[in-house]
């Protein structure tokens, strides 16, 4: 890339799409509330869809609709078809996620990830009949060779 700033619209769009993905990813990484995470996912998905549309877009072409007249330069139709599918899938997944969130809220009364994590961990442990996790300060009970018997005193 040369350093002179010539606003290439395609590059701007690509940057925008990637930016959306990055913003969504950041939201997923730093979010603590499940619903916000779902929203962040939606944001990132929009970025990915945009990227796909750009992949087949041409500035100097018309919409890919066959009208019977001599075909002018057309925008590649395949990505657009793909994006449609992807959007449908994305919406479906998000709807499912939100439905699951409702169930989670009903079960635990919270959507905060940290709290949920602790609750679920406790739940699993209780179901399995395991005590609290070992402290790092107590290596003697570790299941490794360190905890095995030595020779008799």
């Amino acid at each position: 890339m040369d350093m002179t700033f010539a606003p290439d619209p395609l590059a701007l769009l690509v940057i925008g799409a990637l930016g959306l993905i990055v913003v969504g990813a950041a939201g997923l990484a730093f979010g603590r509330h499940l619903f916000r995470l779902v929203l962040a996912l939606g944001l990132a998905e929009a970025g990915a869809n945009l990227l796909l549309v750009i992949a087949g877009y041409r500035w100097d072409a018309v919409a890919p609709i066959l009208t019977g007249s001599a075909p002018a330069a057309m925008v590649d139709p395949v990505p657009q078809a793909l994006v449609l599918t992807a959007i449908v899938i994305g919406v479906g997944v998000q709807a499912l996620a939100v439905a699951l969130l409702v169930r989670v809220k009903l079960a635990y009364g919270t959507l905060d990830l940290a709290e949920l994590k602790a609750l679920v961990e406790r739940d699993i442990r209780a179901a399995a009949g395991i005590g609290e996790p070992d402290s790092a300060q107590a290596p003697a009970t570790l299941p490794g060779p360190a905890g095995l018997i030595g020779e008799r005193p």
Partner: peptide
């Protein structure tokens, strides 16, 4: 067991 470490890594990889 951590909450969402994968996303940290993924965010880094996306970048």
């Amino acid at each position: 067991r951590a909450i969402n470490p994968a996303f940290y890594l993924l965010a880094a990889s996306v970048a």
